[in-house]
Structures are given as structure tokens and as C-alpha cells.
Design a protein around this nucleic acid. Structure first.
Ligand SMILES: [Mn+2]
Ligand SMILES: [Mn+2]
Ligand SMILES: [Zn+2]
Ligand SMILES: [Zn+2]
Lengths: 124, 124
DNA sequence: TTATTAATGCGACTTTGTTGCAATAAAGAA
DNA sequence: TTCTTTATTGCAACAAAGTCGCATTAATAA
């Protein structure tokens, strides 16, 4: 159960920290200086999710994106914010504003997955 | 370009109308009384999307769900509402309330994809 | 009835993500 | 340092979702 300090783990975490946006496994692989197997990347990312170091977003392209958690409380690891995916440059940004969605009584929320896609200002 | 009146088309549209929730291809296939190929189902659904008869939601399970459009204007086919996916019964419901997400200047929205997953009231 | 061509079925294919298993290598004990 | 334990990795196999090419079928209109 104890986490070990490996090259892959450090590299992936550094990449996510530096990116300041959510990345999918392909983006991570092409930014990595070391060769890493696809399975390893996914396993590392899923471990990060368990440890609440990153949060996962499923894009409207069906792919999983992972973003480094910047201002998550120790206990409160919730991400009710939207993500903007630019269909031109592929960037998946975390939007700042938190969103509240009214749900019917008795509904238990376990995961929030908000994605808006379109074209970002850099891509006109 | 002209659409033809076929058994598959009618059946799938009827299923979606009756369901009152979003269905994925598997759900449609198991509710269909006629045998239909997977490729056919997807082609029919994508045609429906083009014709704005249904809207597509990508779930946080990575699957595509399709819902019959109930109150879409002739020209205004936008769906800024959330969907609730119950991880117990699999139901993907359209929530009523429309959501507004503030975006930075210059960002162009093309698609809204909001999914909240958890447990619905029927599944305790 | 016949001609046109949209729609279907089938198979092959791509992509994404997961899993089993043997090999590797962190981390702590000796 | 050396040994032991077991978390992590690479590789291959696999599963599932979705797409596409192509020959066949059948809806529509001439
Ligand atoms: Mn977090
Ligand atoms: Mn609509
Ligand atoms: Zn962009
Ligand atoms: Zn339910």
C-alpha cells in the first residue's frame, strides 16, 4: 500500500504540475523525456487520483484527462468546476468558477464532470 | 441527402421517445424488438443528431448517450443542462435547470457536456 | 415497374483503457 | 552493505466503444 518514489511517478507529476491544464495519456507520453508504457501511465494516474493529487475529467471526446489539484482542501477533494476543451489546440483548461447544480431530493452526488468544448481565444 | 423511413429508424426514435432519459447504444439494442447492427444504431443516432432530433451526451463512463429533444426551439438546439447518471441503475437523466458558465472573453462555445454521477433516489 | 441511391449488415479496423504475469527495483530490515 | 519484501513496471493480451469500406437491400419517386 505504500507508495514508492519512481522515475515515472515523478516525471508524470512534474508534467501535470507544469502543464496547468488537464492532459490525457497521449499528451503526457509525448511530453515525457523517459519512455513509459501506456499501462504504466494509466496506473500512475489512477494512483494519483486515489491519493487525490489529481482529478480526472472525461472529455466530450471520450478521453480521460488529468489535472493537478491546486487548491484542494485536505479532506474536501471536490471539483465542481467546468473545463474548456479547445477543439483546435486540444487544450483542456480548468475554469475557475465553481458551479452548483440543483438535484432532486435523495440524489447522492459522487462525481462532477463538466466540459464545454469550442474554440479558445488563442485559436480565434 | 433525403432521409428514408425505415424500421430501424422508427424503432430507435420510438425507444428514445419512450425512455425519457438518455440511452447508450447497448441500452437501445437490448430494448429493440428487431435485430440491428451496432454500426446501424450509431449511424441512425448520428443522423438524428444532425437533424437535431436528439442530443448527445458523453458520460463520465466514456460512453455516448442519446436523448430525445423535448423542448428544443426550431433554430435553437442548445442543451445547457446537466445529466445525472446513476451508477447503480445506469439511468442517465436530463436535469431541468439550464446552467450558465462564465467563460473568458473570446471563447466560442460549441458544445455543452455536463454530467453528474452518483446514486439516484430510486437506488437509495 | 424500374431506376436511383439512402440505409443496412458484416467484417475489419482504430482507439482507449484495463488486466495478468513475470521481471525489476524501491525501501526498510538485518 | 547486503538481504528481503513487495510496489511498480513492461509487455502482451484483452475488452469495449465507435468508425469505416463495401456489397447488398430496400425506400422513394419517376
Ligand atoms: Mn482535488
Ligand atoms: Mn435539442
Ligand atoms: Zn485553443
Ligand atoms: Zn438509479
Amino acid at each position: 500500500m505504500n507508495r514508492r518514489n519512481t522515475e515515472s511517478t515523478n516525471e508524470i507529476l512534474a508534467i501535470l504540475k507544469q502543464a496547468k491544464s488537464a492532459l490525457n495519456h497521449e499528451m503526457i507520453q509525448e511530453r515525457a523525456s523517459v519512455k513509459m508504457d501506456r499501462a504504466t501511465i494509466y496506473r500512475v494516474l489512477n494512483r494519483f487520483c486515489e491519493d487525490k493529487l489529481v482529478h480526472k475529467i472525461v472529455g466530450d471526446d471520450g478521453k480521460q484527462y488529468f489535472a493537478f489539484c491546486t487548491n484542494c482542501q485536505e479532506k474536501h477533494h471536490q471539483h465542481n468546476h467546468f473545463h474548456f476543451r479547445c477543439t483546435e489546440c486540444g487544450k483542456m483548461e480548468c475554469m475557475q468558477s465553481e458551479v452548483k447544480v440543483p438535484l432532486p431530493d435523495g440524489y447522492v452526488v459522487r462525481n462532477f464532470n463538466g466540459v464545454i468544448s469550442g474554440v479558445c481565444s488563442s485559436c480565434v
